[in-house]
Structures are given as structure tokens and as C-alpha cells.
């Protein structure tokens, strides 16, 4: 998996790392059981601080996306979205969609973008329940 971070972006590095890993899980590049490099090795490969990678991994662990183990290192886990996550995610989606509406994007275009993005994540992901 390629992790690309943008140093000139306003998004903090740990957040970018976390986002890229979540996207890789959605795209099916990372599946349940896929190993991630040890924190120290990843920090050295990026030439960034150990704590930045540690923070990203910690976020992913809190969100139940990876499991940190002293022996096996970081491994991707599968989680089922609970009601708390659904509420939180809906709130964030609301903000993101509001931005589109506020900037005058037509609803059709927003929906088309959402559909094509979801489709790009591949067939390995569960379809939305009717």
C-alpha cells in the first residue's frame, strides 16, 4: 500500500495517515488481518516523528479499525458499525454535504459523486441495506 502525505496541507500529518489507511481498508487494499509496519519503521520511512505515527495508529485503534499487539504489531481488524458510530458518522456526513449545498453543488451531482465513490471501493464492501 502506498501512503502519500501532503506536507503543505492544513490537515495534520497524523490525520492524513489515519485517513489514507481508512481509505485503503475501504478500497480493499487492506483487508482483515493485513499487517501494518511497526510504528518506528513507518516513522523512519517517512522521516517524521515517532509520535505522529503513534497518534495515527492510536486513533485507528480507538475506532476499532486496527489491533495493536506487542508481538504481531499492528493488524487490520473488522468491526461492525454500532449505533454510536452511525450517529457520529451521520453528523459528519451532514457537515460535508452542507458544504456542497452551501457552495451551490446540485443535489444530483452530489449523489452521483457519492455513488461513484462508493462504487470505486469495490465489491468486497457490503452494499447498503434496503
Amino acid at each position: 500500500m502506498i501512503l502519500n502525505v501532503d506536507l503543505s496541507s492544513e490537515v495534520p500529518l497524523y490525520q492524513q495517515l489515519r485517513d489514507r489507511i481508512v481509505e485503503a481498508i475501504a478500497e480493499g487494499v487492506l483487508t482483515e488481518g493485513s499487517p501494518l509496519p511497526p510504528i518506528r519503521a513507518l516513522a523512519a520511512d517517512f522521516g517524521i516523528n515517532f509520535h505522529t505515527v503513534n497518534k495515527a495508529y492510536d486513533l485507528l485503534r480507538q475506532q476499532g479499525l486496527i489491533r495493536l499487539n506487542r508481538k504481531t504489531g499492528a493488524v487490520v481488524t473488522s468491526t461492525i458499525a454500532d449505533s454510536a458510530f452511525r450517529e457520529d458518522w451521520t453528523a459528519r456526513a451532514r457537515t460535508l454535504l452542507s458544504e456542497a449545498v452551501a457552495r451551490g453543488l446540485p443535489a444530483d451531482e452530489v449523489l452521483t459523486t457519492c455513488r461513484s465513490l462508493l462504487a470505486s471501493f469495490g465489491t468486497s464492501q457490503p452494499e447498503d441495506t434496503p
Binding site: M1, I2, L3, V5, D6, L7, S8, P37, L42, D45
Partner: peptide
Amino acid sequence: GMRQGIAVDTELRT
């Protein structure tokens, strides 16, 4: 005005 970035291939380690 350049967007500077760093790319890492995690598979080189895993």
C-alpha cells in the same frame, strides 16, 4: 506554491 509530499510503500516492510 508547490505541494510537497512524502510517499511510503508500507509493503516494503510488511
